[in-house]
């Protein structure tokens, strides 16, 4: 959790984590595009996995941390926790949007359809709506404390969907593929693809950290300006 050094004189320097994240993402894209072979049966569409699965992981991480920070706020009433929850939820919505865009782009050539109302896809869309609703709720409630309380409750309830989404491929008949890496018998990918897969996970997790740091700094500056305006 990072606030700006001082709310009245925010830092204008480039965050080193942001620079590192940008380099990692560029490296991950370059490796996935130019240095990882396409899969024999699915063709180049299989490479969508390298941006789709890490985005899903980051979205779950973001919403899980939103719920934890919200629960923390309910106990401690610390504004920094509320700012973190707000920031993590917004970044989580961005990554869930990436999941919902890249999924159909894989589904069209492989399944022959852009979308199907199966459990995994429908629950992921529902998760996106819940956290878009979370952001709308934050914009609608004016009092800082009541906004933090209402959004903490919604943030916690929304995160309850995450285990269902993760387990949906086991619990329901679904078109969505089973995990290819996190499975008891070990990953089913050749090492060159597995390395790219893990590099993308690392790069997008770092991107999440950088974006949340920037978003938290923005929220701290905004709150400081509001406080100054109220005298």
């Amino acid at each position: 959790m990072t606030d700006s050094p001082s709310p009245t004189t925010p830092s204008r320097r480039l965050d080193p984590v942001a620079l590192l994240a940008a380099l990692a993402v560029v490296g991950a894209y370059a490796r996935a595009i130019w240095f990882t072979p396409p899969e024999r049966i699915q063709g180049y569409a299989q490479k969508i996995l390298y941006v789709h699965a890490p985005a899903a992981w980051v979205a779950f991480l973001a919403f899980g941390l939103t719920a934890l920070a919200g629960a923390g706020w309910l106990f401690l009433k610390d504004e920094r926790l509320d700012r973190f929850a707000e920031s993590s939820a917004e970044v989580g919505v961005v990554f869930t949007t990436a999941v919902l865009v890249t999924g159909p782009l894989w589904g069209r050539p492989i399944w022959g359809t852009w979308w199907t109302w199966d459990a995994r896809l429908t629950l992921t869309l529902f998760l996106w709506f819940v956290y878009v609703g979370y952001l709308v709720l934050r914009g609608a409630v004016t009092g800082r404390e009541s906004r933090a309380r209402a959004s903490a409750v919604l943030g916690i309830l929304g995160a309850l969907l995450i285990p269902f989404i993760h387990l949906s491929v086991y619990l329901f008949r679904t078109l969505h593929p089973m995990p290819v890496v996190a499975r008891p018998e070990g990953p089913s990918m050749p090492p060159v693809m597995l390395t790219t897969f893990f590099l993308c996970f690392f790069a997008f997790t770092l991107l999440y950290v950088a974006l949340v740091r920037a978003r938290v700094a923005y929220a701290a500056e905004r709150d400081a300006l509001e406080d100054a305006a109220q005298g």
Binding site: A18, R40, I41, V51, V94, V101, T102
Partner: peptide, 28 residues
Amino acid sequence: MPDNALYYRLAYAATLLLYAGYAISLAW
């Protein structure tokens, strides 16, 4: 091997635009 490179190029371009767009919105 099926010829479906267009879909993966679109996916990569869309995610890059989304993340860059969000970062720019934060800076703005």
